[in-house]
Write a protein that binds this DNA or RNA. Sequence first.
DNA 1: CTTACGGCCTGGGTGC
DNA 2: TGCACCCAGGCCGTAA
Length: 290
Amino acid sequence: MPELPEVETVARGLRAALPGRRIVSVRLGKMDFIEDPSALQHHLPGRRIEGVRRHGKFLLLDFERPDQKARSFSMLIHLGMTGNVVVCAPEAPIAPHTHVFLALDDGREVRYTDIRRFGRIRIVSDGSREAALSQLGVDPLEASEQEFAQRLGSRRARIKALLLDQRVLRGMGNIYTDESLWRARIHPKRLGTSLQHEELRRLYRAVRDVLRQAIQFRGSSVSDYLDAEGRRGEFQRLHRVYQREGKRCFRCGATVRRAIVAGRGTHYCPCCQRAPRVRRRVGHRKRLPR
DNA sequence: CTTACGGCCTGGGTGC
DNA sequence: TGCACCCAGGCCGTAA
């Protein structure tokens, strides 16, 4: 499941291979996850890649303008759950579910593989790029503690839902949300507004520590995530709760639980992460039968 | 406006 | 062996 650390790892790998390269040709397999497949065929061949960026969980390939009149554009890639971008030799064996092939002028090839095709690819021009990116919240690694606390502490939704909301913070997914909340000792069902200054401070630090450490370990390979060089990440070895239901909490030895919070499988320690008082819906209590 | 929730996309894994 | 079903994560529409 590519989240911020995995996408960052892929972006770094692509940054080592792509800037300065020109795309020679485009070949597509299934294309229902591509917003406008003909736009790829139209715009990419002959164009030179200027840079590679990550924005939240999005990968951006920025293309050079060939002349003053031409408009600049970017290729926006969201890896979804099982998306994967690799740069390899054209004779390398083709992984199943590979649907995009971009031939490069150095003889190599960019390939996009996506088992479930929950990923998305689109071409965005100058204007639509800013429109698309401005929908997203702050990068947790760029936000100040004040900004982080302000964004999360002012909302009445569950903290798990807020951390996952890409309009609040960009880049967090299920793994790093559960891991951060465990490290900050905050229950996923707590409401943003219920968090004390001290808890928000712990959460800020936890989120940043987890993300930075995960980037150092090249991300988590839980199912089939591989980076741009086709290597697995290693951060799954450092997971403290994610997919550890029934095992012992690393901190207190209690049994890690799994529950559905914000519609997501959620892993937490019931001992270290104290549940908020049960909220009962006002006006929905059944009268006792007489 | 804010929040909660169900459904959709697809295919691998599981269990009968 | 085959097959029905569950589930993953992001996102969108709808309801309260």
